[in-house]
């Protein structure tokens, strides 16, 4: 094989590769669009009026997740399944955002941490690599960490809206999450960097809880809830 032949063979391979990437990019753009829409829907829970509408907002978000499912099944068809990690970088970011949104919806509905299986199910993808397009564990964890900072914001805003019990529940939840993350041996990678931000969320929520308890607002809220 001559040098020229060899290089034109490689060039053929590279341009085929670029075509696949181009296709993936288009689908990922749609996914990002839908993710933004879901975020807009969920953002309204930070409004004082939004607190009463949490179930309806969640229902609406769940509807939008159907669109996500179709986009993702389209994405699956764009490349051979065993080459997931070859193109991983293209959808890594959006998949983390979507995991965050799924986790946020599940938290608002049931105040529980979304499991990896649930998150994958909401997105219409698999959990284990062998079965096809899956949710990578690091992406799942990154999504959960994004949710933690959203919850610290929610704690602040729920006080403003007059809901004094929610911050305490959020605090318990985040503390449990924090202990969970402390079990992991993270390498010096993007996930680790993101995890390092968790302590600030924990701190912020603790401050909110402190403010509430020093003013007796948490007790007041409890008796109110009991009545």
């Amino acid at each position: 094989m001559s040098v020229t032949e060899m290089f034109s063979y490689i060039q053929g391979f590279l341009s085929a590769d670029q075509d696949v990437r181009e296709d993936i990019r288009k689908v990922v753009q749609n996914l990002e669009q839908t993710a933004r829409e879901i975020l807009t829907v969920l953002q309204s829970v930070h409004q004082p009026t939004g607190f009463k509408e949490i179930p309806s907002k969640c229902a609406k978000a769940r509807e939008l997740f159907c669109t996500v499912k179709t986009h993702l099944s389209e994405l699956k068809r764009k490349f051979p399944m065993e080459q997931y990690y070859r193109f991983h970088e293209h959808w890594r970011f959006v998949l983390q955002r979507l995991t965050f949104l799924a986790a946020f919806v599940v938290y608002l509905e049931s105040e529980a941490l979304v499991t990896r299986e649930e998150a994958a199910q909401i997105l219409g993808i698999e959990v284990v690599r062998e079965k096809g397009f899956h949710l990578d564990i690091e992406d799942y964890l990154a999504g959960v960490l994004i949710m933690a900072s959203e919850l610290s914001r929610l704690a602040v805003n729920s006080v403003t809206a007059g809901d004094y019990t929610r911050p305490i529940r959020i605090s318990n939840f985040i503390n449990e999450l924090d202990s969970g993350f402390r079990l992991l041996n993270l390498k010096n990678d993007p996930l680790r960097k993101r995890y390092d931000g968790l302590k600030y969320d924990v701190k912020k929520i603790e401050e909110v809880v402190y403010d509430l308890s020093i003013r007796g607002l948490s007790k007041e809220a409890e008796t109110e809830a009991n009545m």
């Binding site: 449990e176 924090d178 202990s179 969970g180």
Partner: peptide, 24 residues
């Protein structure tokens, strides 16, 4: 206080133990 609040057998901790293994 935080650790006292955390139940070691809670589903979150159990899940993270699995994640720990997978990541390692």
């Amino acid at each position: 206080i935080r650790d006292a609040n955390v139940n070691p057998s809670s589903p979150i901790i159990a899940a993270f133990k699995v994640f720990q293994q997978e990541l390692d």
